[in-house]
Every structure is written in structure tokens, then in C-alpha cells.
């Protein structure tokens, strides 16, 4: 079995299982925590608040300072770039077709792929820089934040290093980082990619019931 076969075969199966089981476990944990009985008099719908909460937090409100703007722009660049790459980069479409879903869809042209990667890289680097040069963020960031950022960065970097698509070894290294990234995810804050809906829903419902926009 070659290195590529290992990282795309058994290790990929292991990594995606760890991710799926880990994510399910985290969600189960959150639901099991339950919430205290809310004795406030309901002034409006909690459910509506929970739904509103999902969307309201896509845009910042209040305190629209330079810091927020920086965070907002860098955050969107990184996340949109990353999703664009994950779902629409031609090699990913092929991989997902062969290993996950069984069908394919329209992929980005090569220039679009590169541009999206550049946008994602810019966002990610800006977000990490904020951690090392904002006095507050320096204090707030712990090892998990840095490991999460670096793992994501290395996964993306090894991907772009394999862009020539001419060396199996480079593709294997990229895949190795994908596997490590997936395994690390449930144990880290990277899990916000799944849990964000729950936190937004919880806050939304809490304030929604009180008739307040969260």
C-alpha cells in the first residue's frame, strides 16, 4: 500500500469517522446539558428568536470600529474562500464524487480556484496576525487557537503546493493534513463550524422570548 493509498484509504476513513462521531458527540453533549427552566413571562416567540439569531450574527451590530471591520472582512474572506475551495475546486469535486457523494457538480475554472485560494489565504493570515499583534487577542489566544489556525493553514498550503497535480507524494501530504485536520476538529474550537448554530440558537431563543433582538 502506498503512502497515498493509506492517506486516501484507511486514514481517510478513520479521520472522517472521528470527525463525524466527534461532531455528533459534541452536539449530543450540548443538547444533554439542557437549559434551565425559563421562568420569565414570554413576550415573544423563542423559536422565532432562535431562527433570527442564526442570521443576525452574520452581520455585526453595534461598535462598528476598525477592529470589527478588520475582523469582519478577514473572517468573511477566509470562510467564504475556504468553502469555495472545499466545495468547488476541481480536484475536490472529483474527490468528493469518488469518496463521498457519488455525483459531481460544476467546478471553478483554474483561475477562479487560484483567486479563491488567495482570498482564503489572505483572510486566514490576517486572522492569525490579529492574534499576535492585538494586545487583547494576544491574551485571549491559547494553544488551541494557534494549533487550529496553523493546521488549517498547512492544510491549505500543502493543497496549493500540489497545484501542479503532477506528484502523488504532494497530493498525499495534502491529504495527510486533511486527515489530521479532521481528527483534530472535534477536540478543538474548530468545532465552531458545527456548533455555531446551537450557540446562536440558544442566545436567539433566550432573548427572543423576552422580545429583545439578540
Amino acid at each position: 500500500m502506498t503512502f497515498l493509498e493509506i492517506v486516501e484509504g484507511p486514514l481517510w476513513t478513520l479521520a472522517s469517522s472521528v470527525f463525524l462521531i466527534g461532531a455528533a458527540w459534541r452536539i449530543f453533549g450540548i443538547i444533554r446539558l439542557g437549559r434551565k427552566k425559563d421562568i420569565s413571562i414570554p413576550r415573544a416567540s423563542a423559536l422565532l428568536g432562535a431562527i433570527k439569531g442564526q442570521f443576525l450574527h452574520f452581520v455585526p451590530h453595534g461598535g462598528f470600529s476598525f477592529r470589527t471591520r478588520y475582523h469582519l472582512i478577514a473572517g468573511y474572506m477566509f470562510h467564504l474562500g475556504l468553502f469555495g475551495l472545499l466545495i468547488y475546486a476541481a480536484p475536490h469535486v472529483l474527490f468528493l464524487k469518488e469518496n463521498v457523494v457519488g455525483f459531481e457538480w460544476v467546478a471553478l475554472p483554474r483561475w477562479g480556484f487560484i483567486l479563491t485560494a488567495e482570498i482564503a489565504f489572505t483572510g486566514l493570515i490576517l486572522l492569525w496576525i490579529r492574534r499576535i499583534s492585538d494586545p487583547v487577542m494576544i491574551q485571549l489566544s491559547d494553544a488551541d487557537d494557534h494549533i487550529g489556525s496553523w493546521l488549517t493553514f498547512l492544510t491549505m498550503l500543502t493543497g496549493c503546493m500540489a497545484l501542479q497535480e503532477s506528484h502523488d507524494s504532494l497530493r498525499a501530504v495534502h491529504m495527510l493534513f486533511v486527515d489530521i485536520w479532521l481528527i483534530y476538529m472535534p477536540f478543538s474550537r474548530l468545532m465552531h463550524s458545527v456548533t455555531f448554530m446551537f450557540s446562536r440558537g440558544y442566545t436567539g431563543a433566550f432573548f427572543g422570548r423576552r422580545g429583545v433582538v439578540p
Binding site: 498550503l157 500543502t158 496549493c160 503546493m161 497545484l163 503532477s166 506528484h167
Partner: peptide, 15 residues
């Protein structure tokens, strides 16, 4: 080395 060179070049061109 050919793999390392290819990786360096692709990374360099993209960034």
C-alpha cells in the same frame, strides 16, 4: 527534489 521544487514553485506563484 522534483516534487519539492514543484511544491515550492506552485506555492510561490500563488502567494
Amino acid at each position: 527534489w522534483s516534487a519539492v521544487a514543484s511544491a515550492s514553485l506552485q506555492g510561490h506563484n500563488l502567494l
